[in-house]
């Protein structure tokens, strides 16, 4: 059953700016099974969005994939020509973005913007494409799609625009949907609705999903597996339960401590992670998180740690798990409800 739909191997992406090479992604490897939902979590600047843009080959000048391979259904996307990539994008891999207010073109109708992709990839007539657009709007829960299809984006609310974005993304029945911070710009209630919709759609249309977010709370519900990124590297990878209940990396622990949890009442304290992310023009020699890590050791500043696998599929890049490492009293941030 575990057919790998996407496999990224040691991908490095840099932006060559006038102040120097910004190494946004510094060697990332992960995979995605068919029908699986993978969460990529990290704060802004961790390289998570660049990773997804690299997979889509949507990087704009001065960004380039320096090395690595991206196998999608067995074919390396990095080696594909521009024209070949075009027939992959929007067709087999689709993407939705953070801000639905600006992600739709204000001067075309919603219907036009859905039909565009369908006509391009599926060689159908205009009328059929329009039917498809109406179906898609219905699928994502837009009321009276027959009239809404002719509306302009400014006539839609934020949540509806994100639904429309999802409709565009799913219009060609892609094998993989990459959702880059799909809920960040929305109100909390709308966020929940959109997440619910994504979960629902995953079942209905059986696409694989990569959900990118800075909010661990968002992935918990939708994703079965989670990757935690920091400073252009993967810090920890594991099943959702592992990440939430047995985090290995101090960064993951920090993230867990900074999520508000209703089930803990007033007793909890939100603990921010001190400091700020590393400068990726001059990335640190050692572990990128060392400067902010409460358990940092000399070795962390000097050498980049390898991955230590604690159990199958759950691994972390942290010196704490080296056989010679001293034992620490770790505050994991896991707080189970008592009783």
């Amino acid at each position: 059953m575990t057919e790998k739909i996407l496999e990224v191997k040691n991908m490095k992406t840099s932006f060559y700016t006038h102040v120097g090479e910004v190494q946004a992604v510094r060697g990332v490897s992960f995979h995605l099974d068919k029908g699986e939902a993978l969460g990529i979590v990290g704060e802004s600047g961790s390289g998570k969005s660049v990773t997804s843009m690299s997979v889509m080959r949507l990087l704009q000048y001065p960004g380039t994939i320096k090395e690595g391979e991206v196998f999608f259904k067995g074919e390396d996307l990095v080696k594909k020509s521009k024209a070949e990539m075009m027939s992959v994008r929007g067709n087999q891999i689709a993407m939705i973005f953070q801000d639905p207010m600006t992600s739709l073109n204000p001067v075309y109708t919603i219907g036009n913007q859905i039909m565009e992709a369908v006509i391009r990839h599926q060689k159908v007539s205009k009328a059929e494409a329009r039917e498809r657009a109406i179906d898609m709007l219905k699928l994502v829960g837009i009321p009276s799609p027959e009239t809404r299809v002719d509306n302009y984006p400014h006539e839609f609310s934020g949540g509806m625009r994100q639904r429309a974005m999802i409709a565009i993304a799913l219009s060609c029945q892609p094998d993989l949907l990459i959702a880059d911070e799909p809920t960040t710009a929305l109100d909390v209630t709308i966020q929940a609705q959109i997440l619910e919709l994504l979960k629902d759609l995953k079942k209905k249309v059986n696409t694989s999903i990569i959900l990118i977010t800075h909010d661990l709370g968002v992935v918990a519900d939708v994703c079965s597996r989670i990757i935690v990124m920091y400073g252009g590297l993967i810090m920890e990878e594991g099943r959702a339960e592992d990440i939430f209940y047995e985090p290995l990396h101090p960064y993951t622990m920090g993230l867990l401590k900074s999520i508000p949890r209703l089930d803990l009442g007033h007793k909890q304290r939100l603990v921010p992670i001190p400091g700020s992310p590393p400068d990726l023009i001059k990335p640190p020699k050692g572990c990128p998180f060392a400067a902010r890590c409460p358990y940092a050791m000399k070795i962390c500043l000097e050498h980049q740690p390898g991955y230590y696998e604690r159990k199958p599929g759950h691994k972390a890049a942290c010196w704490l798990y080296h056989q010679d490492a001293p034992t620490w009293e770790l505050d994991t941030g896991v707080r189970r409800v008592k009783g």
Binding site: M86, G90, M95, F97, N105, R120, I168
Partner: peptide, 14 residues
């Protein structure tokens, strides 16, 4: 630089 240009590219338009 607008987001909707990125959306258009993500649709696979030339």
């Amino acid at each position: 630089q607008q987001d909707y240009i990125r959306t258009a590219r993500a649709k696979g338009l030339p």
